[in-house]
Design a protein around this nucleic acid. Sequence first.
RNA 1: GGGACUAUGGUGAAGUGGUUAUCACAUCGCUCUGUGGCAGCGAGGUCAUGGGUUCGAGUCCCAUUAGUCCCC
Length: 397
Amino acid sequence: MFEVLKKDKRTKARLGLLKTPHGIIKTPSYVFVGTYGRILHLSRNDIKNTKTQVIISNTFHLWDKVESYKNSKSVIRNELTRNFGKLPIMTDSGGFQVLSLAFSDKNKVGKFMTGEAKADKSYKRSKIKITEKGVHFLFNGKKMFLGPELSMKLQEKIGADILFAFDHITSPLDTYKYNQKALRLTNKWAKICLKEHATNQKNRANKQILFGIVQGGLFKDLRIQSAKSIGSMPFDGFGIGGSYTKKQIAKVLKWIIPHLPEEKPRHLLGVGKVEDIFEAIENGVDTFDCVIPTREARHGRLYTKTGYIDIRRGYYSKDKKITETGCGCFTCTKKISRAKIRELIKSKDRILNAQGQRWCLMHNMWFFNNLLEDIRKSIAGGKFKEFKKKTLTKFKS
RNA sequence: GGGACUAUGGUGAAGUGGUUAUCACAUCGCUCUGUGGCAGCGAGGUCAUGGGUUCGAGUCCCAUUAGUCCCC
């Protein structure tokens, strides 16, 4: 299922192949986010043009579909394949909603996650109730419940290639004691997920892959404890979860990675700025997903080797150059100028605006896929460190 | 020559005389890390100019200037 092709001599970076029922992922690889089972504004052909290898959708957001297609098998998987193309797909467990729904205001979640809201006492986990069995919460005025068994059942029906166990994420604002409690639940739920998963896979032709999730917040002993316990369970791979204040990702990874089995793949959940990618890979991460390339594309931020540009700025209104000279993305190859992209994305017309977003999406996704391709080459050539230094020196964030 | 109307950030508009002048678009700046639908947050006006009335004027009065329209 997972094959390590080469290990970097100076770092923990590694080159690998992650084999799934719907294709092989060359690792390290970026995983793009298609929460609702599609990438907004992109057709499967567009996605193909971005060299995307794998996409992650969200169980929580696809829940409705599972309900409505209760009796017809593989309908959702077929729909995902229709939207994404024939690609390996991951599904997140819905565990993250434990956090985001608890704070409902989406703008606050970010702050909550990065710990920037330390002084604000209104950040309380007040809108949900977490029990031994899972999480009770209100959504659109409806009382709902999601737990490990249900998450596994839903994920089985959605039909992704790689599934994640239902975990309990914490925030940098949570105390040691709270993290301890959360960790106990994550471990307990992990076992339930494994059991449920085994049952679900019995009659499946193409077995789905299941990743367990390491938690433990920003506490070294809890992280190590979690890596050891989750790492010793018979998962196919491991997700690394949590939320971090800026620049703590590498530190946490250094605690965890030594305690995870070498032969199994590791996925870092929700992280993916350019600098973070290098830190993650350097510390032994194989895949990672993040909304940054797609969300920022929709907001008009385009990535280049020297940093990003905010294409909506007036400065670009007469800029006839393509986004980046030498870029092989569909947008740049089609010679869509910065001025044109700006004109479209600034448009109040829905259709035109969507076209602008599409050009940006294709550029950014290609940019990140290309970067990862270069990283893979650098590991293959034994020059990862040099490539990291060269790239980050040039790239100004 | 006579009369009417208008004059508020870059643009277009709102503003019964009373705390830090409102909105949209544009501009500039910041943000986005297990997203979800033309993103969010923030900055820049002292209200054409000069006087006057008033405790207090963008808001009332006068003059000047500019523009639009009408009459001769």
